[in-house]
């Protein structure tokens, strides 16, 4: 039996600012993880990743990151992805101050 597919979000960095972005269900790039489309199907995930990779003038390095459903939308599961939603831990820089991270 194939292992169960872990839900994913499509994430990348914005071309101009380098900021972390997430692909939404309505084809926008959001700065907020909670607005990402939570993808529960493997074939759909590949399609969404292809779509993201084609947006060469908006984002760089799109990939699928593990996520889970949360009360306010998708949440990251791995600590690296958690840090990417926030910014560095040594200064109040990045998303934690720029986008009102909760």
């Amino acid at each position: 039996m194939a292992p169960r597919f872990t839900p994913k979000v499509v994430t990348a960095n914005a071309l101009l600012e380098g900021d972390v972005v997430y692909l939404t269900a309505d084809d926008r790039w959001s700065r907020h993880h909670a607005e990402a489309e939570l993808i529960e199907d493997e074939a759909h995930a590949q399609l969404r990743l292809l779509h993201a990779a084609s947006q060469k003038l908006i984002v760089v390095g799109a990939y699928l990151a593990d996520a889970k459903a949360g009360p306010n939308g998708p949440e990251p599961t791995h600590f690296r992805e958690v840090f990417r939603t926030r910014g560095p831990s040594n200064y109040a820089h990045g998303k934690q101050v720029e986008t009102g991270h909760v």
């Binding site: 900021d19 972390v20 390095g61 840090f83 990417r84 998303k95």
Partner: peptide, 13 residues
């Protein structure tokens, strides 16, 4: 860009 010292890191260039 790498030849010019520019990396893309976790949160920014």
């Amino acid at each position: 860009r790498l030849m010019n010292g520019l990396y893309l890191q976790l949160h920014a260039y």
